[in-house]
Amino acid sequence: MNGFLEYVPGTSLLHRMNPVAKLLFAVLFAIMCFCTSNPIFLAAMLVFALALAASCGMMRQTFGLMKAVFVFSLILAILLIFTTPTGDRLVDLPWGYIGTGSIMAAITTILRLEAAAIPLFLTFYVTKMSDLSNSVVKVLHVPYKYAFTFASTVHFIPVFMNDMKGIMEAQTARGVEFDQGGIVNKIQLMVPLCVPLLVSSVRKTNSAAIAAEVRGFNLRTRESGYKQYPFAAHDVAALVLIVALMVVAILLH
């Protein structure tokens, strides 16, 4: 089973698209979601994003992501309900009121975050990290150093998650009860674990940096990569589609 943000091999259209086109599409899609507050349009975009996920067989990963984003967006939505007194008055509060506008703002926020997140995360599941970093160097002329830094950061997320799991197992085996007590107790127990995680991440990063240096990292330029990343018709079509959707989003705003 693949880990968080790890490439899942496949032959779908999304897999075959140019990595830069995928990245641009996902970024513009996220921006588009923030350009409009129309809940119907956002709901349609969420369905569109889910269709994209289904087209490349990533529904399991997408539902996992949606669950995580929902928790975060729900917190924001609750804040909005209590701090956005707009629309018809529904419930009076000491500092204002909850109105129909508050409810709509909360729903819009959840839809917006869910819709914006899916293509961004999908990009990582359908693109090899090496292709993503090499293509932004080749096509967008991003310095390799920055592309490598970004790729390494993403690459290390599942590694650190695995490390954290190992550290928690080790402490559980020593008698630490992570499943007991409230949230404060859990945080108190988790804080000491940040130390070994930090130490292990610094050690890993240092080793990776040394390994890169001795393999001529500083000699690498844009011309070093042999693989080319030409744009195909479907890449251009995807970019035209997202620009059109963005125009619609702005008009609907």
């Binding site: 490390d163 190992g166 550290i167 197992e169 080790a170 402490q171 559980t172 085996a173 020593r174 008698g175 630490v176 009860e177 007991q180 000491p192 674990l193 130390v195 070994p196 130490v199 292990s200 050690r203």
Partner: peptide, 24 residues
């Protein structure tokens, strides 16, 4: 038995000591 109760009976040494060490 809970894992914490088992910890009183079974000591476990992990392959990587850095998973285990966490104090100053």
């Amino acid at each position: 038995l809970k894992t914490s109760e088992l910890a009183r009976r079974v000591g476990f040494l992990f392959q990587n000591p850095d998973s285990q060490i966490c104090c100053n």
